[in-house]
Amino acid sequence: MRRLPLLVCLTLPLAVQAEQPAPEQPPAAAVEPIDSASADARGDLERRLAESEQQRQALAAQLAAQSADRDNRRDEAVIGRLRQENQRLKLQLREAQSQQPPRLLSEQQTWYVTGGGTALLAFALGALSRGSRRRQRREWIN
């Protein structure tokens, strides 16, 4: 029994929509004929529109060419400055490298010396941790 009011509420909007009349469309014969003066004016306006459209396209192309040329010149100037700075930095690097004294040890020799120092330190610590007392031979036999 409770479902009946729910179904009525759901179908009510559909019934209201079905009763609305469709909007009327004007008949095709209702369009007024165009007289010759307005046709001439329309033709003149279309011709002028085509001319102005061509002029707009030409100006747009010219503007694009100018902006591209301006961008190219700006990019070339930036590239030139960066090349000059790169040359200057390379020269500074060469000067700095020539002024440094040669290294005493190469990187491989440095690692070798570090490993040897570590081994000597481990040997010395092992000898010190053994203690001052010497073990005798019989202590080892047990």
Rank of each mutant, 00 (worst) to 15 (best):
Q54G: 15
R135N: 08
S129M: 11
Q25V: 02
L7H: 11
Q66V: 07
S129L: 13
G116K: 12
A28T: 01
A22D: 08
S67N: 11
R47H: 12
S132W: 08
I79M: 09
T114C: 02
A77G: 09
A29D: 08
R56E: 09
G80S: 08
R81L: 10
Y112N: 11
A122M: 10
R73L: 06
V31Q: 14
F123T: 05
Q99C: 09
A50Y: 01
L93W: 01
Q54I: 00
Q17T: 04
L7S: 02
Q62P: 00
Q20G: 03
E32N: 00
A61P: 03
R135I: 00
L45W: 08
D40K: 15
Q84G: 11
R83V: 01
R74T: 02
E95W: 05
R56Q: 05
Q136Y: 08
Q109G: 03
S67G: 02
V113S: 09
S52G: 05
E46K: 07
T114L: 14
R133E: 15
Q20W: 04
L128S: 13
P102E: 15
E51A: 12
Q136I: 01
R103T: 04
A39Y: 07
L104S: 10
A61C: 05
C9K: 02
R130W: 07
R134N: 12
L93H: 03
T118Q: 07
A65Y: 02
D69G: 12
A30R: 07
R138S: 14
R81W: 03
R56S: 10
Q99H: 02
P102G: 08
Q20P: 02
Q54D: 11
A96T: 01
D44M: 13
D44F: 04
R73I: 09
P26F: 01
Q84A: 13
L105C: 09
E76C: 04
